[in-house]
Design a protein around this nucleic acid. Structure first.
Lengths: 376, 376
DNA sequence: TATATTTACGCAACCGGTTGTGTAAATATA
DNA sequence: TATATTTACACAACCGGTTGCGTAAATATA
């Protein structure tokens, strides 16, 4: 076997003009290592006088490579701390082993917990996770989705921004058979995988709970109604009232948002409207917290004067006084389920869309325990 | 000019054997588009009968390309929604235009807000952000740092896990001149860029505030002391006491952690120890919240019996009753500063390490307003 | 008109892995 | 011993952009 020396780009060409020269064009692996240069397959190949394909296969434990060669390659790789260039592999394999995730906002406990669930599954399966925030902005969501497309993510898990109505920016993923999974905020028009909780049922249950406590004039602060989740919770609210023969009063339904600040603003608005109520069902906990802070500041007793309930079971729900009754969502499990769907679709692209709906649980705390109150 | 047809990998080779055949080996751009195939430079090149280098340069608005050609290329790219393969570009350019971020845990408001700051700067500068969590686990931190290294991030912004003492896994980044920026949790042994707040001063100020309120037996629940931040806050605590001639009592210093649960556990422990105190300075807000919840549950009045202060100014600080006095950290600005340092180092790798220390502000609320209390 | 310069573009190497195919040597089977 | 098969590896194309260099044609300068 002749001693070959695979050299880096083009160096050999010059050498061919002066075959009598014995310049050592490519640096030794030792030198490259010492100089903190990237160690590549070629360095190992040169050192062992084998081809880079052999090195590549040896590192993959390919059956066609002899035991001795394998051992030598693996030892050298270990010794020089060889780190494969994931970019190069991705280019050829057309798989980056990354999952893109887009959430409206990271600093909500719900979303960061879902992400923890996604990561948990993803890392175990050898996938990286790229997380992006839309900051509830449609424009931003379009940009980051394009970025992730160009970064060739193998899959995309999304909770859409509250502004998002047009879903065209996700069509490319579908076209290219890149698994696309929506969670929590499911888009209306697009046919795809999804993970959500039974928002309808959760809302129904918690409103029924309020009714059981004796509440009759229950206001609802909804999320933006272009989002299915908000609609479903609204419907659950309405149907619970219906079931118990309480008339639905549109003046008690306020379109709000998902932020504490919006909960505060909507509560203020409700007071200027001078509507009379005995309970508020907020679309999510941050809003419920805003509601409670505002009520407390006005000297209104919770739940004696007004009961308050939320949705999510954020950690803050147990901090506020009185503790907030809310619908507990299995946030971590939602992330796990979404990532599982991704893995399934990545393995078996032929299968149809998967829609998973997880159950919620009532977390009943003091903010709704209205039963023993005096009548107003 | 002859009509060339650049074909995809290897297809031409077979054709060479049968030159008389006129198979159209490469699909037309139109067909590829319709079939949702990836549109590449070569498709555009073929369509226009120019070389792919010309297309590449046209899209970069290179001066050596004629105006007509440029226009034709750009129009076609637009028409077929050409998305450059970022992976391929990265491989050659050795720059992925991504910043890696490692935080202990996403679901802390502080960290997710820092990330929002990083993203803000990064996206404006055309960088993507890959976010990873170490979950406060050293092992996990090592793994994700290797993943990010292999993913060839252009820079790394880190807040180390509470377990991390050994910093070897970051050495590779330094060796390869990949900008490395630590924030909040600064490692002790490693020389690198950093962004932090003046933990010492913040702690000093808030403890001095407690002393001014009349507190004399002030306990401190510290973070893990291998982390500089915890040490600095501890030192600030000690020096504030010293300044006001209050003896430092090691029995009042509890090594705690950063979680609410640890705040609860440590408070319980303190009670079994039966130490007598009139204030608690917690290393961070989640711990302070845990402390307050436990005290309240025991019927201890805050601040009348025991004043409580924290560090961070999480949104929860204004939810708990009484509202928590704490040290406000400019979390978003910390992220911005870290990303700015990255951009600086990426542009001018020669410059030395940058250490940025931001100022804190006291957010004084009821939990520390002890002045008018009755003496115990 | 002859030469110098600019314009506009093609060629081919290159980034660093991966993999289909070909083949010499070693071993197995007839 | 002759042929079939297996083993172990090399070669080279390939992924899809990027860029240094070379050059013909067009234009400018002498």
């Amino acid at each position: 076997m002749c001693v070959r020396k695979i050299t880096y780009s083009g160096n050999n060409d010059k050498l061919d003009d002066f075959p009598e020269y014995t310049y050592k064009v490519s640096m030794s692996i030792e030198d490259r290592y010492k100089l903190n240069k990237e160690i590549t397959l070629i360095d190992i190949a040169n050192e062992l006088n084998v081809s880079k394909s052999t090195v590549s296969r040896a590192l993959q434990n390919h059956h066609s490579i002899g035991a001795a060669t394998k051992k030598a390659v693996q030892e050298l790789a270990e010794k020089y701390n060889y780190q494969p260039n994931a970019i190069a592999a991705s280019l050829f394999k057309k798989s980056t082993k990354t999952i893109g995730v887009i959430v409206p906002i990271l600093s909500h406990y719900f979303f960061s917990t879902v992400i923890a669930g996604i990561e948990d599954v993803a890392y175990k399966a050898g996938y990286k996770v790229i997380i992006c925030q839309s900051h509830e902005l449609y424009e931003r969501e379009v940009i980051v989705s394009k970025t992730l497309l160009s970064a060739k993510v193998d899959g995309l898990i999304v909770s859409v921004s509250k502004e998002t109505v047009n879903m065209d920016h996700f069509q490319s993923f579908l076209n290219k058979d890149i698994p696309l999974i929506f969670f929590d905020r499911l888009p209306a028009g697009i046919q795809s995988n999804s993970v959500s909780v039974d928002d309808y049922e959760g809302a129904f249950k918690i409103v029924e709970h309020l009714i059981e406590q004796g509440c009759k004039r229950i206001a609802h602060f909804t999320g933006p109604l272009n989002i299915a989740l908000a609609q479903n919770r609204l419907q659950g609210y309405k149907d619970a009232l219906k079931k118990h023969h309480i008339p639905i009063n549109n003046e008690l339904i306020y379109e709000c948002g998902f932020e504490r600040t919006q909960g505060i603003a909507t509560t203020e608005k409700m007071f200027t409207d001078q509507v009379s109520i005995d309970a508020i069902f907020a679309v999510c906990d941050p809003v419920a917290i805003g509601v409670m802070l505002t009520l407390k500041q006005k000297g209104i007793k919770i739940p004696r004067d007004i009961a308050v309930v939320g949705f999510n079971d954020d950690p803050t729900a147990t901090v506020i006084d009185p503790p907030l009754t809310t619908v507990a969502q299995p946030a971590f499990e939602i992330g796990v389920a979404a990532a599982d769907i991704f893995l399934k679709q990545a393995t078996d692209p032929g299968s149809g869309y998967i829609k998973e709906i997880l159950k919620t649980n009532l977390a009943i705390r003091q903010s709704s325990l209205w039963k023993d109150k005096d009548n107003i």
